[in-house]
Amino acid sequence: MKSNCLHLAIPAGDLTKAMTFYCEVLGCKTGNSEEGRWVDIDFWGNELTLHQSEEQLPNVRHKVDMGEVAVPHFGIHLPEDEFQALKRRIEAAGLEYLDKPYRRFVGNEYEQETFFIKDPNGNVLEMKTMVNPELMFR
């Protein structure tokens, strides 16, 4: 059986702040929830569950072609127009990039633009757009 919906649950700190970030800044919608404990977010067709928490995940940096990226991280691949619209929303909200937009693998079939941001609890998100998304998994 194959499913195209990923489920990921993360510590979100203050749920009100987290929901503002994910819904108002990123443009996601809410789903099921348990008041004060957790809320499901429609993360571009995937189920991201934000859990009220005190803890934050530690982040370390791993070397890649663009420098050192934060690990762990998660994110989404978006069509170019949605990716550019998301960058405008992030900038309009006055958020700082953890790693500014960067083009990788220029001239290669895997060419992409990517950036990293943090949510209010310090979870790292990588957002990207691929020039040839159909070639990602052949």
Rank of each mutant, 00 (worst) to 15 (best):
E113M: 08
R103F: 06
E24D: 15
R37T: 10
V60K: 13
A92L: 06
F115I: 03
V106G: 07
D81N: 14
A70V: 01
P120C: 03
K63P: 11
E34Q: 14
E96C: 00
Q56T: 15
I76S: 02
L95V: 03
R89H: 13
Y110D: 11
H62V: 14
A18W: 02
V60S: 13
G13Y: 12
E109H: 03
I90H: 00
E34F: 15
G45L: 02
I41G: 01
Y102R: 14
L8Y: 03
V106Q: 14
F105G: 00
G67Y: 03
A12F: 03
E126Y: 12
R103L: 09
G122V: 02
T20I: 09
L8N: 10
A85E: 12
Y22C: 05
G45S: 08
E82K: 11
S53L: 07
R61E: 04
D42C: 01
E54K: 15
V25P: 04
V64H: 05
W38M: 10
S53P: 04
L125P: 11
E113D: 15
C28I: 05
M19S: 10
F105I: 00
D65V: 12
I76Y: 01
G31Y: 12
P72L: 01
E35Y: 09
K29D: 14
L48V: 03
R61L: 07
D65R: 06
D99R: 13
E111Q: 12
E34G: 03
E35C: 06
A92G: 12
D40N: 14
D65M: 06
D99Y: 07
R89K: 14
G13C: 05
L57A: 09
Q112R: 12
D42I: 10
D14H: 01
Y110C: 05
V25I: 15
G45V: 07
G31C: 10
I41P: 04
V124E: 00
K118T: 10
Q52K: 12
F115G: 05
F74S: 04
F116M: 11
M19I: 12
I117T: 04
E91K: 06
R89V: 10
K63M: 12
L8C: 11
T114G: 08
L57S: 11
V71K: 05
I90V: 15
C23P: 06
S33E: 15
T20G: 11
G75I: 13
V106R: 13
N121Y: 04
Y102K: 14
